[in-house]
Design a protein around this nucleic acid. Sequence first.
DNA 1: ATAAAACACGAACGTTCGTGCTATTTAAAT
DNA 2: ATTTAAATAGCACGAACGTTCGTGTTTTAT
Lengths: 240, 240
Amino acid sequence: MPQTLRSRRKTVVSRRARGLRTRTAILRRAVDLASAEGLEGLTVGRLADDLGMSKSGLFAHFGSKEELQLATVETARQIFIDQITRPALSAPRGMPRLWSIIDRWLAYIEEGIFKGGCFFTAASFEFDSRRGPVRDRIVAIMREWIAVLVRALEQAQKEGHIATNIDATHLAFEIQSIAIGGHWASQLLDDPESYSRSRAVMLDRLQSVATSRCPSLPSATISARRKPLKTFVHPASSNR
Amino acid sequence: MPQTLRSRRKTVVSRRARGLRTRTAILRRAVDLASAEGLEGLTVGRLADDLGMSKSGLFAHFGSKEELQLATVETARQIFIDQITRPALSAPRGMPRLWSIIDRWLAYIEEGIFKGGCFFTAASFEFDSRRGPVRDRIVAIMREWIAVLVRALEQAQKEGHIATNIDATHLAFEIQSIAIGGHWASQLLDDPESYSRSRAVMLDRLQSVATSRCPSLPSATISARRKPLKTFVHPASSNR
DNA sequence: ATAAAACACGAACGTTCGTGCTATTTAAAT
DNA sequence: ATTTAAATAGCACGAACGTTCGTGTTTTAT
């Protein structure tokens, strides 16, 4: 097999510090670019120019475009977990945690952690009619995400916050749909009310299934305007 | 005799028949291909091969790729109108017509008129972060579509089928979101229950806002696989 | 200090893309 | 049957893509 670069990279056990640093920088920028222009629109040359390095130099870090895409997806997943899933675990089980997940998620899209809206929504539709490892990975991550929603809903039912006659899978599907719809209205129609409407619709929906024992949810009107997540700042993105 | 039917036809069909016929054939195939592989993934060479003609021969019909894309979008819109919007007008105003629109739309995706699911859902996400005439046209068509939903909802409120305290825009947004979510679950996750769940969720949602004067909606469980519109019972006598 | 390993670069390759130019076929009008 | 314009094909182009390769430069280990 003439794939010298790829095989060499794979067998490498420990990466040196510098390479890892640039690799991280590349991927951070790659996620940002890919969320706006897609994983395919993200070209090696464009990304290299953007980072002020050569195509081949950048390319050597991954060995193939597919590997670059896979690494980008993995990076996006990690950011998603760091920003949303894990911090939400600090909220008490049941409706509070569920709302924490949803709220952080909406904030994450709203405040534009990535330029092009939700990375995985964009990636989902870009790869929904393709084949190969990249699609497979995206599918797995999305299944994982839906499972997170379903689990949070079922916990809320166990805690007695949500009526038990509600189908958790259906409701998770609704929540996911409304979020995607928010992305759609915001990115395509340039609707500024898009996300506050998503928030309002979700709140309304959750309130309609909440029991009397459920801790109170925030009011839909107040929560339209929120503070940004301070944590993640990408350096070279002031153009639009 | 000034303008007989025959002479008028002669002037109207001054463009030769053959060219128009191949153009139509090209566009029909283009819509199909684009729904699966995107408007950008649809390449001139691929399309030409698919139709057994030369790249340049096909290309001459449009003059540029952008014109081909615009014509493809227009063709898809016409199909959408012919299959969904116009036939739904034969249903009586209010909830019956609203459900007719939704039902035909679900059937249209479900039965696979286009290989890649809903053409406009795919196109929306493909062009949501681009610029130019193609994006503009897609945006306009989607606004048009949302307006159709809102109008149907407002008519249903005027007819007394839907409670008047419901925000029609919010509900239209919900409906659109659930449809997109159905596309997402079906195309990405290969979920076979996707569309029947979309149908069930929409029915559930509509039933929750329906008044007592609303004609009965079909049952959600039965309607997984169904004949269009037959299950809809509207009491012609009980109204007014 | 020096060899080895890791990292980055520039040039080039083979493809594929949209597109323009010119010749040839085709079918309607005379 | 001949003319004529539309319809299609053939061919070539420049740009952009992913990718490879040889070589130079930095960093680490000995």
